[in-house]
């Protein structure tokens, strides 16, 4: 069966500006993987490891220097318009027109995607209700909503056009525990109850373990492991001769970084 997302030898280097004052950053250094239809695929890695760069390539917002990336069989560079019809993205920073209301922002997206407003409004309200977002706040300006509420609106925006592939770039980073749990539960439901293919980047090992069918670990622009969370843990457990191995242990073993250091890195994703 044809993969929904496929990357072959994808490279991306940022050259440090026109004056080359900064050192070049090799954000992606030969990425290869496939994502199957209907799968929730997780990508975990420290800050600056290339997660967001990869999401941007898949979103048609960044050209790879080398290699090919396909979404639903369409090349992201050669057929960006076709890819855009099939994808949606939620990024770590809920980017909105802050002075506009939730509905005004969603309405703008609906118009961009050509979704009739009546349908868009109903879809958005349904998704937001499932995320625990009160309909009374629908017409409040985004700047008056909490970070968690903004991220819920971002999820609703991503689903307004009924995508086939949902790209989630650290969707729960910075959320309060309740909002985090509500967003995670909704992703879980999407995974279990729809045909949507989900590509999730995260720092959260619990999320990776409980939401994802398979997980890839990326470090310095390379995928250093790819398997089910269970298998990844089993491999390390066998190596260590211990039964008590967590996904976080696997992450630390493979990225050779302390978790605290990884969190403190400059965000070069």
């Amino acid at each position: 069966m044809q993969p929904i997302i496929s990357c072959r030898d994808v490279h991306k280097t940022f050259n440090g500006g026109i004056l080359k004052r900064k050192k070049p950053v090799h954000a992606l250094a030969g990425i290869n993987f496939d994502v199957r239809s209907g799968e929730c695929f997780g990508l975990i890695g420290p800050n600056g490891s290339g997660k967001s760069t990869l999401i941007r390539v898949l979103s048609t917002l960044l050209y790879p220097d080398q290699g090919q990336a396909h979404v639903c069989g369409f090349d992201v560079v050669r057929k960006p318009y076709r890819v855009r019809e099939l994808i949606s993205r939620v990024s770590v920073d809920a980017a909105f027109f802050k002075k506009l209301s939730a509905w005004e922002n969603l309405r703008y997206s609906a118009r961009l995607y050509g979704v009739p407003l009546r349908i868009a409004r109903q879809r958005a309200l349904d998704v937001l209700a499932e995320l625990g977002f009160s309909a009374r706040r629908f017409n409040d300006s985004m700047e008056d909503l909490s970070r968690g509420m903004q991220q819920k609106v971002a999820v609703a925006r991503a689903l307004i056009n009924r995508p086939q592939v949902l790209l989630l770039d650290e969707p729960t980073t910075g959320l309060d525990p309740r909002s985090k749990r509500e967003v995670e539960a909704y992703i879980q439901r999407l995974r279990n109850q729809t045909d949507l293919t989900i590509f999730l980047t995260t720092h959260d090992m619990y999320e990776a373990e409980h939401l994802c069918d398979r997980v890839a670990i990326i470090d310095k622009g390379r995928i250093v492991a790819l398997d089910t969370p269970k298998m990844l843990k089993r491999i390390l457990a066998r190596k260590r001769g211990s039964d008590h191995v967590s996904l976080e242990d696997v992450f630390l073993e493979l990225t050779h970084k302390e978790w605290v250091d990884a969190e403190g890195d400059d965000d070069g994703d």
């Binding site: 099939l86 118009r111 009739p116 086939q164 729809t194």
Partner: peptide, 24 residues
């Protein structure tokens, strides 16, 4: 049981699309 908001997943291009997108 499927999530009603996403049921059915409509293939791209099969849904009625609004014209005059520049109005956005």
């Amino acid at each position: 049981q499927r999530i009603p908001t996403l049921e059915p997943m409509v293939p791209a291009g099969a849904e009625p699309r609004m014209r005059l997108r520049f109005l956005a």
